[in-house]
Design a binder for these strands. Structure first.
Length: 387
DNA sequence: TCTGGGGTCCTAGGACCC
DNA sequence: TCTGGGGTCCTAGGACCC
């Protein structure tokens, strides 16, 4: 039986490397992928750019200050999604026990591969070689006994490397690290931990679990107490169903005026509807998100009896939720989410119903769009905006 | 330099039911 | 007349992750 059967596979600077496949002049220089507008942020930075302090989630303007020669490439998520599908196909050709964490990251349980491989490390090297030869992309792999250790191992293997953390050495490896490496420990939790005098994982291991639960909450306290002690029983769970679908947009300039805001909301409803229908899903809960000029952010949601996936319904509910807010200007961001998802059945109604005519129109519109692209047909209100 | 977009999970309060 | 405990659902906000 293999002692360390968990692999964490993580693509290196994924968006940047996909862009480099298409444009080799981007190799060997500081490059970042992200928003190029006035409010853009960096999504992925090359290692050459990281040497200048460029980081993901950093405002693009700030990245350019830090690294004046930086090439910033606008992101193309459709293409990254296509490459991601090929990466996951390759991973699943090794084992079905693949749990995706994002477009460029996955856990694998390779326990079942003992007949064909000498060790989990050999599986990891085969995976890296496959991603390199079939897709032309670099990746890093962590091999360990648990998810936590495998993830930390891949992190320390980057870029383009593999690290194996044997079960016997894992506590020592873990305790030397800052507490912020643990999953769920971000800025707020870090500050709470600092009040308890905790900086490293070994500090954390000294704190009584009851104290942790009191200052961090029940779930987080329990989880961290366990992880610090090296206990991580989380299994690799092959992919589960989506719980929400959402779209949002930050505008280059804050929106003012109900007409303008209404049009923007309609555009979002339309985008969300397309994504729901492509996924064959409908939502029973619609959530409107509004970020104001001062960055204050509020959400308003409504759960309804029958699920919706059409832009007319989404737009109407979003408009009603918007009307419930008193001061709505200026608007920096609008977002729309569908949750409490269920598969769309969309049975044909035989009786005459006021919604039927519109359902048929939406079906026809959907058909044309899926054949000619999203922009082929849009609500008339959107035409003067971008088309 | 000024803060993206797409997600997941947790908490807490209130409504409602048994 | 006053007071239960538990479970589920809904809403809003927040932390976190990539």
């Amino acid at each position: 039986v293999w002692e360390e059967p968990i692999l964490h596979v993580d693509m290196d600077s994924f968006f940047v490397e996909v862009e480099r496949l298409a444009d080799p002049t981007l190799r060997g220089i500081p490059v970042a992928v992200g928003g190029t507008g006035p409010r853009g942020v960096i999504a992925s930075a090359s290692y050459e750019a990281r040497a200048f302090g460029v980081r993901s989630a950093q405002p693009t303007a700030m990245a350019l200050q830090a690294c004046p020669g930086l090439r910033v490439v606008p992101s193309d998520h459709g293409r990254y999604a296509e490459v991601s599908i090929r990466v996951f196909e390759l991973l699943r050709s090794f084992t079905p026990m693949v749990e995706g964490l994002s477009v460029d990251e996955a856990f694998l349980d390779v326990s079942g591969l003992r007949r064909h491989h000498r060790s989990p490390v050999e599986v990891g090297e085969d995976i890296r070689a496959g991603i390199r030869s079939e897709l032309g992309l670099p990746s890093s792999v962590g091999v360990a006994a648990t998810k936590l250790m495998a993830k930390l191992a891949s992190e320390s293997a980057k870029p383009d490397g593999l690290r194996h953390v044997p079960r016997s050495g894992q506590v020592e490896f873990l305790h030397s690290l800052p507490a912020s490496v643990l999953p769920g420990v971000g800025p707020a939790t870090q500050a709470a931990l600092a009040k308890l005098g905790v900086e490293t994982v070994s500090d954390l291991a000294q704190v009584p679990p009851a104290t942790m639960e009191r200052s961090l909450g029940r779930a987080m306290g329990r989880q961290l107490a366990g992880l610090a002690a090296g206990i991580d029983n989380r299994k690799v769970e092959p992919d589960s169903e989506a719980k929400s679908l959402s779209v949002e947009e930050t505008f280059d300039l804050d929106l003012e005026g109900v007409e303008v805001i209404g049009s923007a909301l309609l555009a979002l409803a339309h985008r969300l509807s397309v994504r729901l229908r492509r996924s064959g899903l409908s939502g029973r809960t619609v959530t409107l998100k509004v970020r104001f000029g001062d960055f204050r952010t509020v959400t308003r949601s409504r759960t309804i009896e029958g699920p919706v996936d059409g832009w007319r319904d989404l737009s109407r509910i979003a408009g009603e939720l918007l009307a419930e807010l008193d001061a709505i200007e200026p608007v920096r961001l609008l977002g729309l989410a569908a949750t409490t998802l269920e598969p769309s059945s969309r049975p044909r109604q035989l009786d005459i119903d006021s919604s039927q005519g519109w359902d048929r129109v939406e079906d026809a519109v959907f058909e044309v769009r899926s054949r000619y692209g999203e922009r082929a047909i849009r609500p008339a209100r959107l035409l003067d905006e971008d088309g």
